[in-house]
Design a protein around this nucleic acid. Structure first.
Lengths: 163, 163
DNA sequence: CTCCATGCAAAATATTTGCAATTCA
DNA sequence: TGAATTGCAAATATTTTGCATGGAG
């Protein structure tokens, strides 16, 4: 094993511990504490969605999760996503390309910025807008109780690759 | 005919001239000038969508337009909506209840406020936000080129009816 | 009279449901 | 062991496509 390969593994482990594994374990715990059983099918789906940097459709989740657990069925993906959404661990993301993709839900970070090229999705904050939204509502006679804000663009990595 | 009925007709005509008929005629003209033929099916769809205050699904358009032109088929609704969208006369609207509804597109008014109760949809302006959106993009390394902003709430009429 | 447009039927997709076999707790 | 979970197959729901007929220009 080369130094390079070793370093990759270390970095991967650090990465998983920092942003991957703990989220997976937290989701599995929450499924369990809400009365759902932990199965290999659910573990595969949770690992796939929790670690993804982009919103995935049920079919994409199915394809990726099947490499972890080949016996997985598409129906189980649908049912697991349903439960994760119900527990507010993921949310459905609407994009120009479709509205059936799911992404980990970051608490308190309501707004999304999505790369049109690679699909990478990140949350950003914008609390100062709530006041503006209420004002707009008042002006039109609405009591505003929800809002969707999403930005679309090209991320740095994709711009670099294109040049 | 009573004075009341007469007044209703006058008001309806004024209304149609102000916000309904002219839009319908404009859309039909644009269909024609883009090489599409004017048929009764298309007239029925255009009248339904152009005059609606809320976003309508293909099935809803079909049901409403069929009362104007009973021989209408659902497939023609899909195909007509497709052409209207291509001509940028309507847009697909994403709601919690689904993403397959279409609404007249008001030029220059990019953002929507939608009543969760009755579905009424109105556009509002918010040009001052473009700068903010670009800033957010920069901070995350994105070149922002598009944005979605939608507010959801309860309109005045629905609040009144509930009390 | 010539194509474009239509509506039906069928196909293609996407999602949900019924159910017997399996697996977790 | 008992009940929740699974995957398959079938049912639904939605949208698209093929095609013979009809209608606009």
């Amino acid at each position: 094993m080369t130094i390079g390969a070793l370093r990759s593994i270390i970095i991967e482990n650090v990465f998983q511990q920092a942003v991957g594994l703990s989220v997976v374990e937290s989701w599995l715990e929450q499924l369990q504490s809400n009365g759902y059983r932990l199965t290999n099918a659910r573990r595969a789906v949770v690992q796939t969605v929790a670690r993804s940097q982009r919103a995935l459709s049920p079919m994409q989740v199915f394809e990726q999760a099947r490499s972890r657990y080949p016996a997985l069925g598409l129906v189980t993906v649908y049912r697991t996503l349903e439960k994760l959404e119900e527990l507010k661990l993921i949310q459905r993301v609407h994009q120009l390309s479709g509205c059936n993709a799911y992404l980990a839900l970051a608490e308190g970070h309501q707004h999304l910025i999505i790369c049109l090229e690679c699909g990478r999705a990140e949350y950003f904050e914008g609390e100062q807008m709530e006041g503006f939204f209420s004002q707009v509502g008042e002006r039109h006679g609405y009591r505003v109780c929800e809002h969707w804000l999403q930005l679309f663009g090209i991320c740095r990595e994709c711009r670099t690759n294109e040049n």
